[in-house]
Design a protein around this nucleic acid. Structure first.
Lengths: 127, 127
DNA sequence: CGGTATCCCGTCCGATACTG
DNA sequence: CAGTATCGGACGGGATACCG
């Protein structure tokens, strides 16, 4: 194989860019929300609590650009736009699901660890 | 079970915080770098290309706070500090590995999709 | 060696207003 | 309904300097 090794530990490795995409807050949630089937823009917005219209649009555009989501416009009045995971998007959904499950499973442990860590700190800001 | 459902789609769900931690650029890489065994601070810095001292410290502190990494100081001159994944940290390493593999596998496809998407755009900034 | 403290700039992102 | 455009505050994160 003559392709350069995909080593994310190197600054300029393209897989860094991929990880950066995953890195943003909303990508994981959007992909998760679409895992049950296509949804309209407004349905996504309703399902994902706290996302702004701007961020939802931005995230969806990025996913579309990466070929992970398709955007279908139904020429009606009022317009209807549906988003759906592509084949590649579905494959992403699997590792993300694993991550989400890990988060759900270990969340209590982590929260406890945080409290202990914070409790052991010198009491700053307590005059 | 009387614990509230861990639904990341709700704004105030604690698992959002967990996903946010994963979300930062360096956590994934640090955990990956530690998967082969404990490393010193300088070794981590050398291994992860592009990370600043500040960010490495910050990431390690966050991981330590969450109980995913232990920090061991060997009282010597000059000092030596080693970081190692905890049991919980090792369990995280697994889903992250899956994500990293996904990134490596689908990176070429994504890069191609991006080029096509960008090429299809109206030529902005070309007066 | 392994940090902490400070400065400072870029970007993220929410709020708001407007359009097809 | 599903966006785009613009503004502005918050914050991430790099560079630098200094400490135990």
């Amino acid at each position: 194989m003559d392709r350069p090794p995909a080593d994310p530990y190197q600054r300029d490795c393209p897989s860094r860019q991929v990880l950066d995409r995953i890195g943003d807050r909303w990508t994981v949630l959007v992909v998760g929300a679409l895992s049950d089937g296509p949804l309209r823009f407004s349905q996504l917005a309703a399902r994902i609590d706290g996302v702004s219209q701007k961020m939802l649009t931005q995230t969806l555009r990025a996913l579309e650009r990466d070929g992970l989501v398709t955007r279908t416009i139904y020429p009606q009045v009022p317009p209807r736009v549906e988003y759906e995971l592509t084949e590649a998007g579905v494959t992403l959904q699997e590792p993300l699901q694993a991550l989400e499950n890990w988060a759900k499973t270990h969340m209590p442990t982590i929260l406890t660890a945080r409290q202990q860590y914070d409790a052991a700190l010198p009491a700053v800001n307590t005059p």
